[in-house]
Every structure is written in C-alpha cells, then in structure tokens.
Design a protein around this nucleic acid. Structure first.
Lengths: 127, 127
DNA sequence: CTTCTTCGTCTACAAGTGTAGTCTAACGGC
DNA sequence: GCCGTTAGACTACACTTGTAGACGAAGAAG
C-alpha cells in the first residue's frame, strides 16, 4: 500500500499544480501558456515541474520527446493538508474558533451567514 | 502613522512569538525555558530572536546587560494574515467552502456543530 | 545527410530558514 | 583590580525556494 508521505508544495509549485488540477495531462507548453499571467520564464516553469516530479507530486508520461504531466497529489488531499495544518497550528485544531476569528476580521456578509447556516443544518441532518 | 508592512514569520519564529504572546516581556532565558520541549540549543533561539527583532516583529528593551523582549506584531494580526491568506489561496476567500471541506476531512463532531450553530446565531443577531 | 529548433536536464545563485558554534564585552565575585 | 561567566553579536552551513541561463540530444525541415 502506498506510503502517503506528506509532500510539501511551495507556493510557486502550487500554482503549477493548480494548472494541472484544472486540466491534465498537459505538456510544458500548455502549462506555460496557462501561467502567462505570472510572467515566468519558460525555464522557471520547467524547473518547477521537475521539482514536483522529483517529489512525486506529479508524474510524467513520454509522448514522443515531450512529457505529459499529470497530478499524483490530488487537490483535495493538498487542500486538506493545508487546512488542517493551519487549524492545528493556530486554532488548536478546531474549526469554530477559526470562523469566529475570521468573522472579526472580514465581517461575514449576510450571504456568508446564510450559506454557513445552511451548511450546518445539512451536516446536522447527516448526523 | 505606522506603515503596516506585511512581515512574514517562519514556522520556527512563530513558536518563539507564541511564547512572547503568552508572556512578555521576557528574557532569553525564560524563552529558552518555555521552549524546552523543542530541544533547541540556546544559540538557535537567540538567532530566532535576533531575526524577529530585525524584522520588527518584536522589540527589545535593555535591562542591565540583558534584553527583555516583547511582541510588536500582535497575535491577532498574525493569525488574521495566515487565515485570510489560506482562504484566499485555497477557497477564493470564502469561509463556507472551507468549513465544508474541513467537515469532509475530519468529521465535525456534534459538539463542533453545536458550537458553530451557536456562533452563527450570535453573529446573525449582531447583524 | 546537415542544420535549425525545441525539449528536457543540469547548473546557478541569491534570499530565506533551521540549526548551531564562536567571539567579545560587560558583570559579578573575590 | 583580575577572572570566570554569560548575554548578545557575528559567523557558518546545508537545504529550500524563486528565478533563470546553458547545454546536449532528439526531432523537424530542407
């Protein structure tokens, strides 16, 4: 069974992952195009891809002389790691204090409150 | 008026800040003691303190030949930065998807749900 | 076949981070 | 006043990260 090693993704790497999470497999050129707004040189993106591959966060399939990359680490997994990590570090692993704090910072809009209320009820029903 | 520059605190530095947030002003020795569980050499902690001071996250007052450190960056501020940062990066800045995702990972306990419900109602009342 | 182009790989390099050792000046004890 | 102790300052060093250039091999073009 796969040993799910906790692989850590840097900010820049996460942006590359985001592209692949939206559309994969993808070649370097596609990824470069998708990241145009970042104004990274092609080399930079190649480096990030290579680092991600070495870490095992993505895999590359040969297609001719090119590589087609696909995520191995799933977005859900990564989001979970980040979220749980933050909650543990800052809020003793509990979600309520997080919401409370957040509500003090950026006032939650009425819409947010409605959404949240609905979500809670839903969760409540499913037990 | 103070220009609130966004100062970034590394993980190790945050641990030192945590000590100061709990009790300050504090001298190096106290901080070292408070961080015994980390098994860091005294030098390490001195370095972290110095880095934090240079960044302006803490300030040092001379007391004889020692320094007494106090936080400048407040915990609330930092927690807000981290939280908002994560929400923006991963959840489009919205809190509901965060709670939703979290609930799928670590099942929210009944107690969590109750707490959350109470919090929402409260916020709801205050508009 | 020779040449141009294009990929992927290797190398680079400064800043930040984790972790710690060394040096120096001032303090406290005798 | 001299000497050991000690606090803070300075130095170190490997690893990660952001950012990119250089190089070599394989494919495309003619």
């Amino acid at each position: 069974m796969a040993v799910k090693r906790r692989l850590s993704i840097s900010a820049a790497e996460a942006e590359v992952m985001t592209v692949l999470w939206q559309h994969s497999p993808a070649g370097t050129d596609e990824i470069v195009t998708a990241l145009e707004h970042r104004q990274w040189h092609e080399s930079t993106i190649k480096t990030l891809l290579e680092r991600l591959r070495k870490k095992g966060a993505i895999k590359a399939a040969k297609e001719g002389r090119r590589h087609l990359y696909s995520p191995v680490l799933q977005r859900d997994e990564w989001v979970a790691q980040e979220s749980v990590g933050l909650l543990d570090r800052l809020f003793d692993g509990r979600v309520t204090p997080f919401v409370a704090h957040f509500s003090r910072q950026r006032k939650l809009s009425r819409k947010d409150l409605e959404e949240l209320k609905r979500l809670i009820e839903e969760l409540d029903h499913d037990r």
